[in-house]
Each structure stands twice: as structure tokens, then as C-alpha cells.
Nucleic acid binder design. Structure first.
Lengths: 189, 189
DNA sequence: GGCATAATGTTAGCCACTAACATTCAGGTC
DNA sequence: GACCTGAATGTTAGTGGCTAACATTATGCC
């Protein structure tokens, strides 16, 4: 039940220092070459404290800002469409309603993730919740469990690939990257 | 350049003992609750030896038998089709030409992977090569790099989801699971 | 200023994984 | 059957991610 008391200002500051120094160090030296202890030291704090803020070292990089709402738009899609198309259209419409997130920070993170094999796996794990939410929506609207999961995973995979391309500078805006990625899996929608 | 000398019989036996005891222990106790040292001990061997056979503990579970040929069938698909459909049809036709792999062993592995969050990420990483091979074929046949990667990742994601469903007993045969998964992403092919 | 509680520190330890060096084993030669 | 060589394994020591248990400091409120 993640007892979620509002974090105290002090805690927020330490957390932010960890993020700042962490991303800095990792960008300069690489993820594997940067230890949690080193980041903690740079932030003026103990290794133990690092892990009290981030359950794993991966989580420092893989915060998940764009995630949990993405399933919301699916219910509005016409049920005659096959699950893959419903998922793609739903995500697209949900995305359009999102406030512009702080893109520079996200982009730093995604770029690091794209370059670090260890994190590409972790990214997949971290999108697991979203995937499940999408699958649940699809299933609620009539798809079989199997179809729902297959469609959800395919759409998320394409989307993450789009994110990577954006972080690498192949696509100009996050929005465009998402649109193009979804077009590939459901181009006629 | 993986200097690949043919492994000596002795080495093969130790390796097999590690696999046998490893899968046994993991099935009984869970992946996280089973240490590499424990598996090594059960196989009558040192922890160090374990890691000389498997670069990581993950690799003991995630051997990759069905992988590298899957890209082969793509070249035969009509180029007018969009990349996603070419990929799906290519994999389907490649699969049909494969000799039946030793399914019981694979199924044990996939089932473990499906149940272990840490391994679901690793699975993704381990399919990276296949994904890249598929994307390369798509690109060679005229798709843009972006389209190629998005389509390849979506198809692989669906396929892995199908594998999980098969391992869980939701689908009877591996072949059927693959067909159904591909139908979801490219049903009209 | 005093107090309760959140935030951090300390210490000790497990496990995945690696490097460097020492030992044993298997298969062919004589 | 003793001998020799290279592959396979063992030993030891260490790093880094991560956790548990307990002690200390800081912060906001009275």
C-alpha cells in the first residue's frame, strides 16, 4: 500500500541533489562506471541514503513520467476496431491531452537508457504497469486476454522505440516520435 | 570474435549439470531465492566455475534457442506490404521451416522467465539481437530505419507475450501461440 | 527551549560478478 | 604405464548493488 505521506521539503531537496549529480556523473562516465556510492558522495550523502530514495540504481534514471495515464484514452475508441488499433488510437488521444512534460529532463534520461544495455531491459520492466493497464482496458472492452496482452505489448514496444529515436535526435519532437511509432503499428487508424 | 573452439566433453557435462540442478532449484525456490553459489554447490562445482559457464545468472535460464533464424523469412515477403506485415509474415514462414525444438526444456525456461520480474527485463535484452536482425532486413527491403525498428520491436514484443501465454498453459502448442500473437499485430496477413 | 518524528548515519552482511594465480584432470606420446 | 600439455576447475581477494538493525541528527510545532 505504499503509504504515501507527502514528502518533506528536506527529503525533496536531497532527492533532487541525487538526481542532479547522478545524471551528471552518469552522462560523463557512463552508467556502469558510476557507482551509487559515488553519486551519494557527490550529493553529500551516504550510500544508504541513496537507496532510501531510489529502490534501485536504475530508478534514478528511469523515473516514469509519461506513463500511467496512457491507458485512459482507450475506452473512447470504437469497439469494432481490432485491439491493436484501439490501443494505438487510445494512446494517441491520451497523449494529446497531456500537459507538455519537462522534456529536457526526460530526454536526458531516455538518452542514457538508450545507450545503456542494462537499462534497456529495465525500461521494459518499468513499462510493465502501463502495459498491464492498457491490456486491462482492451480486455474490458471485449478483447480476449491473449489479444489484449499481445496488442498492449506491441504498442508499448513501438512507443519505447520511438522514444529512443527521439532521444537520439532522429525525430524532432516527442509528439512526432510517438505519432510515427504508433503509425507503424496501426498506420490506417 | 567469440573464439569458438568446440567445447570439450567434460565441459559439456558440467554445463549440463549446472543447467539441470539450476532449473530444478529455481523451480522449487524461485529465481531470487536461489543463489549462483547454491546451484554450483548442487552441481558439485565452485561458484567461480558457474560464472565461467554462464556470464550471468540470467543466462542459465535465458538460453536462446528459437532466436537467430527468425529474420530469414522476411526477404521473401512482398515489398508492397507495410513493414509490420512483412515482419509478421516473415517470422511466421521462418518458424514453419524450423525443426521442432525440444519444447519441454524451453517451456521450463519460459515459465520461469514469465514468473520472475527480474527476468522479464532480461528476456527483452536477450531478444535484442533478433530484433536488430529483423529491423536490418526490413530496412534492406526499403523501410526507413525508424519504421524498421518500431515494427521489429512490436512484433517481437507480441511474440514474447505469446511465448509467456504458452508457458502458462493458455495456449496448447508453441506454434499456435506464435500464430495467434502474430495475428494480433498483423491479422490480415 | 523542548519534543516527536522524519531524515540521515553506521556497521555489518549477502549476493552477483571479476581478476590473478594455483591446481587438477584428460588425452595423446613414448 | 610414466610423461606432458592444455583445458577445466579451484582459491583467494575484492568491487558494487542492495538490505537489516540500530544509533544519531535535524526540523517543525508547541
Amino acid at each position: 500500500m505504499t503509504t504515501s505521506t507527502t514528502p518533506t521539503p528536506r527529503r525533496l531537496r536531497t532527492r533532487q541533489r541525487l538526481i542532479d549529480h547522478g545524471l551528471d556523473l552518469i552522462e560523463r562516465q557512463g552508467y556502469d562506471q558510476t557507482s551509487a556510492a559515488e553519486i551519494a558522495r557527490a550529493a553529500g550523502v551516504t550510500e544508504m541514503t541513496f537507496f532510501r530514495h531510489f529502490a534501485t540504481k536504475e530508478q534514478l534514471v528511469l523515473e516514469d513520467p509519461y506513463d500511467p495515464f496512457l491507458a485512459e484514452g482507450i475506452g473512447d475508441q470504437p469497439r469494432e476496431l481490432p485491439p491493436l488499433h484501439r490501443a494505438a488510437r487510445g494512446i494517441r488521444s491520451a497523449w494529446r491531452m497531456l500537459p507538455e512534460p519537462e522534456q529536457p529532463e526526460i530526454r536526458r534520461r531516455v538518452r542514457i537508457a538508450a545507450r545503456t544495455p542494462a537499462l534497456r531491459g529495465a525500461m521494459w520492466r518499468s513499462t510493465g504497469n502501463t502495459e498491464q493497464a492498457i491490456a486491462a482496458r482492451l480486455e474490458a472492452d471485449g478483447a480476449s486476454a491473449f489479444e489484449a496482452r499481445a496488442a498492449a505489448s506491441a504498442v508499448i514496444a513501438a512507443l519505447v522505440t520511438g522514444l529512443y529515436a527521439w532521444a537520439d535526435g532522429e525525430v524532432d519532437t516527442l509528439g512526432a516520435a510517438i505519432e510515427r511509432a504508433l503509425d507503424v503499428v496501426a498506420g490506417d487508424a
